[in-house]
């Protein structure tokens, strides 16, 4: 294995993709948000409630590559129980790690940093951002309603 691959498939990512957190399908939540990549075939569903502007009971289910699954798992853990405003700040923070234009923040979030290799594998960037794109889009729209 070369260093580039080691950078992309960090232990954090392998752990989360093998044992994703809050990985369960729920029948009765207020919202079910779908994230689907037609090119890859990756498909996730996010289940959650929003009470008093707070994202509650967030879980997810579905299939995708190691990167997209780990990313979804980490997102779910980070956004659970956060206010919409705070959740959107966390999303913005995440993008700093994957967007080529942005410099890596200091100090670094170790889990987010694991996705920064998307900068050297541009064809895998969508795997890292799929869930975040859908979620931040949804929350932004919800907030502006």
């Amino acid at each position: 294995m070369n260093d580039r691959l080691r950078a992309l498939y960090k232990t954090v990512i392998l752990e989360h993709s093998n044992n994703p957190m809050y990985f369960e399908k729920k029948e009765v939540t207020q919202f079910v948000l779908k994230a689907h990549s037609p090119i890859c075939g990756d498909r996730f569903e996010f289940f959650f409630d929003i009470d008093d502007e707070v994202v509650n009971n967030l879980s997810f289910y579905g299939h995708g590559c190691a990167i997209s699954k780990a990313s979804a798992s980490i997102m779910v853990r980070k956004l659970r129980g956060q206010s919409i405003r705070k959740a959107l700040t966390i999303c913005a923070e995440f993008y700093n790690y994957v967007n080529i234009e942005s410099a890596l923040p200091e100090p670094m979030d170790e889990e987010f940093e694991a996705f920064s290799a998307a900068k050297i594998f541009p064809e895998r960037k969508k795997c890292a951002t799929l869930s975040w794109d859908e979620m931040s889009d949804f929350l932004t729209k919800y907030q502006n309603q």
Binding site: N2, C40, A66
Partner: peptide
């Protein structure tokens, strides 16, 4: 247990 895209990325390297 290994997603096709992860395999393809490794092969590409």
């Amino acid at each position: 247990n290994i997603h096709p895209h992860d395999v393809a990325t490794f092969l590409a390297e």
